[in-house]
Design a protein around this nucleic acid. Sequence first.
DNA 1: CTGTCATCTTGAATGGCATTCAAGAAAACA
DNA 2: TGTTTTCTTGAATGCCATTCAAGATGACAG
Lengths: 182, 182
Amino acid sequence: MPRNKRHLEQGEKKQAILTAAAELFTENGFDGTSMNAIAKQAGITPNTIYWYFPGKDDVLIGVLNDLVRDGLTEAMTMAGLPVRERLMHAIGVFERPESLMNTVHARVAHSEAIATWHARFHMMLEQILISEVCKVGIPTERAATVSRLLVYVIEGLLSHPHQENDRHEMIDAMLELAGVDA
Amino acid sequence: MPRNKRHLEQGEKKQAILTAAAELFTENGFDGTSMNAIAKQAGITPNTIYWYFPGKDDVLIGVLNDLVRDGLTEAMTMAGLPVRERLMHAIGVFERPESLMNTVHARVAHSEAIATWHARFHMMLEQILISEVCKVGIPTERAATVSRLLVYVIEGLLSHPHQENDRHEMIDAMLELAGVDA
DNA sequence: CTGTCATCTTGAATGGCATTCAAGAAAACA
DNA sequence: TGTTTTCTTGAATGCCATTCAAGATGACAG
């Protein structure tokens, strides 16, 4: 017979920690947020976080997965709109005063967990872009290369603070160069 | 009358520290290198570094400036070669198992010094690319945008471990899309 | 109702880190 | 020779992620 748990909230508390972490990461960045700060925000002690997550990197991964989930969900609801608009919106979801993508890239070399998350993320993003890019009239044999270039441009935008019209300009220019029927 | 210094090596010791730091940053990355390790590599104690540099970020800036200097110097000697080759080589200079560009992006938000270095670096790189890109037949009004896209693609390559033929493929694709006469 | 066991939480370490401080050597100068 | 400036260091300080051993708390078995 299965032994028990506490307040019936196994996953809920985990989510509460992630919510607290997401808020602080967004405000102060990953490096600017201590486990102590996350714990305080969640109303617990830092030790408790380690019962739910192996380490700080894994908290980051949890936050990133929530972000991806939200981004994909919202992208679904925008199914009718053109690629350009959906791209613009997705970048908005991941853009923060303190972009977490920079942290991911900086930590890939130090953390196995972050490295595999990053690899998965790239594959997913590239697959999505390839299919989107084909839909707007880019020949199949070019789609993979164009998608990789797009990934880099998107990450470039996420890595650097920019105005919204810069974002439009860069994405439009890239799509135009790639030969998208505007 | 000017008071004195020691072994006539004011700047030389500074350079020795930078050389030690460059070696370790290249091997283990910025975060993976402690001031203690840099000091040991340079044959001094960590405190001494602080007499020559305000902090660890400033050591990083010193290392980066050396890298830029070397890159520009080598680019000069390749003056006859096509843009593509010079670009490829410049990326090679900045590419490391542990790319420092990721560290720069991650630290821009936390360090004033790194932020201004980063801004200057971008301006310089963009200016160079604009002039290069004009030379190979890209209309002036497009040159700025194409250059910014190129910067992002270059940084994307620097941010991600990749094979040399990936690098060729991405840069060639970008130049071709931009309309460079190959 | 009671003792046991898994689940969850914590106070108090541990070890590493960047950085600072006060004091010490060492060369140049008067 | 003694003072001043330049350089170096041993020994802190304080923050950090992470760990450990012990304490609560609830579910279940008898």
